[in-house]
Amino acid sequence: MQPTLRRLDELATFLADRDDTLAVLGLGSAGAQRARLDEHSDLDFFVVVEDDARWRYVERIDWLEAPCPLLFSFAHERNGRKALYEDGVFVEYVVLTAAELARIPFCAARVVWRRADVPAGLAQSEAPMPRTPYDTVDFHLNEALTNLYVGLHRELRGERLSAFRFIQSHAVDRVVSLMRLSSGEAPYRDPFDVTRRVERAYPADVLPLAAMVPGYAHNTAAARTIFEWLGKRYPVHPGIGAAITALLTRSGDYS
């Protein structure tokens, strides 16, 4: 068995012997989408416990160390940790009660173990998944354009890191969302992160990410590439289009 999945099974076996645990759910590539598991995959999971037991599994990590000694760990949120085992398995987990689990959005979970009296539907979230305010071509297009506009102004002001985020991160996220709407759903799409597995979904001649994300020192070139890519595929409003062109011209990168 793949080491990551084996570690999850080992943890589940250990927790199954305790009377204050309800279930262990695998997520991501350790969940229902195990076909995408590879040597670079980490281990994401939920530990579901009795209402009065959460503190034990949050504050104490003896159960986490049961299968293998830890090389490193830290609390990355109030009820969860990230940890690296000595054998190289990296894990990220959250400890929840059943009531809390019912209120959070997640997808493609897998029941690794559950107590006999726990309903089988525990791995199905009924909480709404995160969505943009408007998941439409018009929204993503104009959001990308305004990201470019704001980012170019930040670049001209000398706020290069902020410009990088607006141009090479926020605008590119909207470009990927446009690709999803025009090309259909990519395999194993992650509703929490549009950038996951995007290289496998769209070839470089369709989505030139290397030119759209060339790095910290190349914000204007990235903005030009994204702006031209959008203009070839979608009706860019002449008002915002002219404003972006003027900013590119001021940057000495457009004619």
Rank of each mutant, 00 (worst) to 15 (best):
E50P: 03
E50L: 13
A23T: 06
I61R: 10
W55T: 14
W55C: 08
W63F: 10
E50S: 15
R54I: 07
E59H: 14
V47D: 02
D20S: 11
A32M: 05
A23M: 05
L25F: 10
L25G: 03
D42W: 08
Y57K: 01
F46I: 03
W55I: 11
L25Q: 04
L64T: 09
E39P: 00
R36K: 15
D44A: 05
D52N: 12
L43I: 08
L64W: 01
W55L: 13
R34Y: 00
D20M: 13
D62N: 08
V24K: 04
L25N: 02
L37A: 12
S41N: 08
R54F: 03
L37S: 07
G26V: 02
G31T: 02
D20K: 11
L37E: 10
V48S: 04
V58S: 08
E50Q: 15
H40W: 15
L27E: 12
F45T: 02
L64A: 14
A53T: 09
V49K: 01
R56F: 15
D44P: 00
E39S: 14
G28E: 05
D62Y: 09
R54A: 14
V58E: 08
V47Q: 02
H40N: 13
D44N: 12
L37K: 05
E59R: 14
D42E: 12
E39Q: 15
A35G: 11
D42K: 05
D42P: 03
L22I: 03
V49S: 04
G28Q: 02
D52V: 09
G26D: 07
R56W: 14
V24P: 06
D44G: 02
V24M: 10
G26M: 05
W63M: 05
E39V: 13
A53G: 11
R60W: 10
V58L: 07
D51I: 01
L27C: 14
V49C: 08
L37R: 13
D20A: 12
L64C: 11
E39L: 10
R34C: 02
D38M: 12
R34T: 09
Q33G: 05
L27T: 12
V58A: 08
I61V: 14
L27W: 09
V48E: 04
V49W: 00
S41C: 08
A53F: 08
G31D: 02
D44E: 15
W55G: 12
V24D: 07
D62V: 07
H40L: 13
L43F: 11
D38T: 13
L25A: 05
L25C: 06
